[in-house]
Write a protein that binds this DNA or RNA. Structure first.
Lengths: 232, 232
DNA sequence: ACCTGAACACCGTTCAAGT
DNA sequence: ACCTGAACACCGTTCAAGT
């Protein structure tokens, strides 16, 4: 009884919903979440939107711009202060918390982090992140020039930390025992690399989270302490 | 009199010189220097070596490993201390000088820097770089655990700084006036982004070199000052 | 054992030709 | 004006079949 195909008005083809840049970015984000950035190709996204790859170029200039748009969409999920959920506080703890959340977000998508590093993002949520970090540094009494340069440094650290996470997620062992650099450092002959011998144990110690929070402490300490040169 | 072709023994075909991994890497480095990493493809390298792309996989596991080998070759050119040319000194100046040279080397090849960030290089010259940085920190009285974690941080900063240099070299204007983020920050409404307004001038001040040396000072300051957590 | 031609399974982007 | 099929000019990697 029920017909195989429901007849559609207007020329017998189902009306495609009108496409917008927002839709395209939202679908792109969904594909990335589900299968990773590697699988999110222009052709794949076009197929997902039921069109040809050429149509995407009406909404984005190129792949890099698409990555930037995806990042900004992703940043909406940060625990922005003042949102009422109290996930991040004020001062040093607020700064560290927000940057850890940013790193954590990108940590899930290392290739996006790599792309972002070359991108210099400029979406509204990225600006908001810069603004919030500036506010936290300012509240901590950091002079304006050190805060301005410091924000760049802090975001670079966070992005690069996520970007370093290569495609070594698929390894069965949780630790990075199988990384070439780990092996090379462990086996480096003391005669040729005496300092590596000196620091051998400490070179591999700590979890990623411990190293990140130490690095953030190092940066905030230094940003507050070292004056910028006179350039104005 | 002189014949067009010198007759070759062994089957009338010019004997192809035997290929080695070293030759392949050297040629790869030459192609990258001449045309950039983007143009250095497996197919292109194979053509340069007068063979098919499949032959390369006898010497390198994949593209990433080739990039790692190129980096190590490149690092041979660093002004290693003790080489007698006195390009870098001891202590803080030596540390900063070596890291600036490393950044400068990678600055010419931003895509290599991007690749390196995901790579965790492990060649002999990279180990030598780690060893030398450890020695300089140790000489500065930095405790071993802070030196070990600090070397990671310093190299990450240097690599990420080079990686950030996107393909915006082709811009005619020397400054980054045309970068989207610069424009966005300049035009960010004070009502929505008050701190950006506060720091507006300082956000764009300074040259790349000034910012790098400030960042290195921030890191060394913090590395010497902030203790690592007890993880041993 | 060592090497490689040809194929596999894709890419991002452009542009002429639709509607 | 807005959209897109088809083409352009490539990719990295594998594998069966050489020598």
């Amino acid at each position: 009884m029920s017909p195989r195909r429901v007849p559609v008005s207007r020329r017998d083809r189902p009306a495609k919903p009108p496409l917008s840049r927002e839709d395209a970015v939202a679908v792109a984000l969904r594909v990335m979440r589900a299968e990773g950035l590697e699988r999110l190709t222009m052709r794949r996204l076009a197929a997902e939107l039921d069109t040809g790859p050429a149509s995407l170029y009406v909404y984005v200039r190129n792949m890099a711009e698409l990555h930037g748009a995806i990042l900004d969409e992703l940043l909406a999920e940060l625990p922005w202060p003042g949102a009422g959920d109290g996930q991040t506080g004020d001062g040093q703890a607020g700064l560290t918390g927000l940057l850890q959340a940013y790193t954590g977000l990108l940590f899930q998508y290392p290739s996006l982090a790599r792309s972002v590093l070359a991108l210099r993002p400029s979406g509204p949520n990225y600006l908001r992140l810069i603004d919030t970090l500036l506010a936290l540094l300012r509240a901590g009494g950091v002079p304006v020039s050190q805060a301005a340069w410091g924000v760049d440094l802090l975001l670079q650290l966070a992005t690069a930390t996520a970007a370093e996470q290569g495609a070594r997620d698929e390894s069965v062992t949780a630790d990075d025992e199988h990384e070439a650099v780990t092996l090379a450092l462990r086996e480096a002959p003391e005669s040729e690399y005496p300092q590596v011998g000196w620091a051998r144990d400490e070179l591999f110690s700590g979890t990623g989270a411990q190293r990140l929070s130490w690095a953030l402490a190092v940066l905030t300490e230094g940003i507050g302490a070292v004056a910028t040169p006179a350039v104005d």
